[in-house]
Nucleic acid binder design. Sequence first.
DNA 1: TGCCAGGCCGGGT
DNA 2: ACCCGGCATGGC
Length: 217
Amino acid sequence: MREYFDVLFAAYGPQHWWPSRTPFEVIVGAILTQNTSWTNVELAIENLRREKLLTPGAIGSVSAARLARLIRSSGYFRQKAKKLKAFVRFLRAEYRGSLAAMFRTPTRTLREQLLAVHGIGPETADSILLYAGGHPVFVVDAYARRILERHNLAEPKHSYEDLRRLFERSLSADAALYNEFHALIVHTGKHYCRAREPRCSECALKHLLPERSAATQ
DNA sequence: TGCCAGGCCGGGT
DNA sequence: ACCCGGCATGGC
């Protein structure tokens, strides 16, 4: 697994993720980008910035209707307005609105708490933990799954947790490493692994990451 | 023009 | 424990 990272890093270098300015902005982006391209999210974030809504307090106070209108470009906008409000409600109730206090919570505990918030599933929880909080949690996404399956390191039956354990078992618990690796996976997935091409022999990554024949861990 | 994007929820088996 | 329909916009 580590060799995959080394190959990708040597080829593409540091990715400078996550593309946001504050931990709260990372969290907003993590929710808005669910099943949505980042370009659609950027417009929504800019609207929130312009309206001075990129703080937990402001999201808590604004009406759901106005919030939904401002994030319209990110898709599922009514759902996502509810989700943003659910998160800041959780933050206020459990941590008096303090992200610093929230991120002081042990990783396992905080992960469970985040998963209990409406609109926060495994990938969003892990993105928040890693990219906003610096906790060493590997973020598994559709690209990571696709790449693992193409290289016979995973199968469709494997769950999100299976894949996360695979990465975390194979790598040292290092937030900077997880950060960079996930970013490289998204970068290469976006540019080189198209959904309609089921085998890696069809994708430009074959020169960097040849397909493997046997399923191993 | 249709397909896709850095998922998740709720209800059903 | 899975499986599925719904959620919605903008880019290629």
